[in-house]
């Protein structure tokens, strides 16, 4: 009787949700660093920059477009999509290896594992966005809208990255196959990226597809990001991108919470 009482009495208190979140996030970031994932996050934007800029620089110059300034938005969005892919793979891996099930049996708030995965994804996004901007500066891209707009540019890009990562997390948790989810996300990323106004101006597309190209989320995100790099922000340019971002967040966040918290 006394032994039980002693054990209960001297038992260390359950760590707060914040400490649990910090521990899980640290574990994921450490794994990211040790496994070389962070190196890939630094190389990816370089490859997007070189791969998108060089083939079309000459053609766009003849059309009077400063292509470094034009293409930077899609480079940033592609790096965010790359982070989304990694988030999906991580969620699927944790589901398939049984790590998620193990966490569910522990005294852990339901949303802590999801929050930690989103946080580690955000860390990766910050690293890859910093690299993308650095490479952009090498090819001639400039953030010429002042400190405020630069902060907004980074905030908007990271917002897109986070919302996409949340959606990808849900997909990864539901799929339980890192390979299937990675391949499933690669194709939409490519189609939405290529059929957007981030890569080629709207006039470069056939007239029948222009309404889709103009109004799809990646185009609206690229318009917003492009606007934030120049002097003065136009609300009518920014709001459709923000609306898409808000709409996606409203749909994907509950889905991710449900996928993360559900019992098998």
């Amino acid at each position: 009787m006394t032994i039980t009482a002693d054990l209960v009495g001297t038992g260390s208190r359950q760590p707060s949700a914040l400490r649990q979140w910090a521990a899980l996030t640290e574990r994921q970031v450490r794994t990211m660093v040790l496994r070389g994932d962070l190196v890939i996050s630094l190389i990816a934007p370089l490859i997007f920059t070189v791969g998108f800029y060089l083939p079309l620089k000459f053609v766009m110059k003849l059309q009077g477009i400063d292509y470094a300034q034009f293409v930077m938005a899609i480079i940033v969005l592609q790096t965010m999509a790359f982070t989304m892919n990694a988030s999906a793979a991580l969620a699927a891996l944790e589901a398939v290896t049984g790590f998620t099930d193990r966490l569910r049996t522990m005294p852990l708030p339901k949303l802590v594992p999801l929050a930690s995965r989103v946080s580690s994804g955000l860390f990766r996004s910050v690293v890859t966005l910093t690299a993308a901007i650095a490479y952009g500066y090498v090819i001639g891209f400039r953030l010429s809208g002042g400190i405020g707009q630069t902060v907004l540019f980074c905030g908007f890009a990271l917002g897109v990255g986070t919302v996409l990562s949340i959606g990808a997390d849900a997909l990864g948790m539901l799929s339980k196959s890192p390979q299937a989810v990675s391949q499933a996300l690669t194709l939409p990323t490519l189609i939405f990226g290529m059929l957007s106004c981030g890569f080629v101006p709207e006039t470069g597309f056939p007239s029948w597809i222009r309404p889709f190209v103009r109004n799809q989320p990646v185009s609206q995100f690229s318009y917003a990001l492009r606007d934030l790099t120049d002097d003065g922000v136009s609300w009518h340019v920014i709001w459709p991108g923000l609306a898409w971002l808000g709409g996606l967040a409203l749909v994907l966040t509950p889905l991710a919470i449900w996928a993360s918290a559900r019992r098998e």
């Binding site: 994932d37 892919n85 793979a89 991580l90 891996l93 890192p178 390979q179 990675s182």
Partner: peptide, 8 residues
């Protein structure tokens, strides 16, 4: 050593 890293 990592199938996911290989894919990426």
């Amino acid at each position: 050593s990592s199938p996911e890293a290989t894919t990426q």
